[in-house]
Computed example of a mutant assay.
Amino acid sequence: MLGLLHTSPVHVPVFDGLRDAEHPGLELRHHVVAELLARARREGPDAVAPAVRTALVRVAGGEDGSRGADGAGAVLCTCSTIGGVAEAVGAELGVPVVRVDRPMAAAAVAAGSRVVVLATVASTVGPTSALVEEEARRSGRDVSVRAVVVEEVWSRFEAGDLAGYAEGVARAVREVRDADAIVLAQASMAGAEALVPEVRAPVLSSPRPGLAAAAALASR
């Protein structure tokens, strides 16, 4: 079983669909805590560490963080803003946690030295940029990271206009210049990937590689 910690219910059908298409038979346990992102945006990701701990304990299936017979073998945190906090808290609990954007960051570093991090929520920029830089150090590559924030389209996501949100992200992608890879920092942005086939630099989203990495960890 794989646990998933979300900060929006919109992600539940996305990951269910990916599971059905690419990981049939994998049992998913979803846990949604929208307040985690709202508070992290107001106060910073570290402020939600205690609440993340509570959420991870719940989704992992043990009151003390342990994984019993019905527990999750790993947890995938699908929120990029709190992903680093979830990894750190998971290590303290002994719960394997995968932040959804780590495999994407590794792919971006492998693509070239100029990485653009595109986000629709400013609180995501710091954690995602730091993650790309971490993956660059891990691979021994020199990478420059540039952030582009298009907060004006976030209101469409909040209103449930997912098509309009994806198109707004796609417009921002088309305006990016001088990039070897464009990282869609939030899982919610993945819908834009299919709308920009003409962009020369690879446009990378996190749900598919993130789920694959977490599924492999949960099966160990």
Rank of each mutant, 00 (worst) to 15 (best):
G3Y: 12
E63T: 11
D46N: 05
C77I: 00
E43A: 06
A106V: 02
A147F: 05
R41G: 15
A86M: 01
T7S: 12
R53K: 05
V203S: 02
R58H: 13
E135G: 06
V143Q: 05
V199N: 11
V153W: 12
A40W: 04
V75E: 11
A38M: 11
I82C: 00
R102T: 06
G126T: 06
A107F: 01
L5K: 06
R220P: 06
P96R: 00
A47M: 01
G84N: 01
E198C: 04
A69R: 14
R200I: 08
P9L: 01
V148N: 09
L195R: 13
V33Q: 12
L37Q: 08
R53N: 10
A69P: 13
A49Y: 07
G25D: 12
R42V: 08
V89P: 05
R171E: 15
E158I: 08
R41S: 13
A194S: 10
E167W: 09
S8K: 00
T54G: 15
H30T: 06
R220G: 15
V196T: 07
L217V: 11
V176Q: 08
R137Y: 15
V97T: 04
L18N: 07
G71Q: 08
G73N: 03
S144R: 15
W154S: 08
R146E: 15
S219I: 07
A159N: 07
S205D: 13
V75I: 11
G140A: 05
H30F: 07
L4G: 04
H31R: 10
P45G: 12
D142E: 15
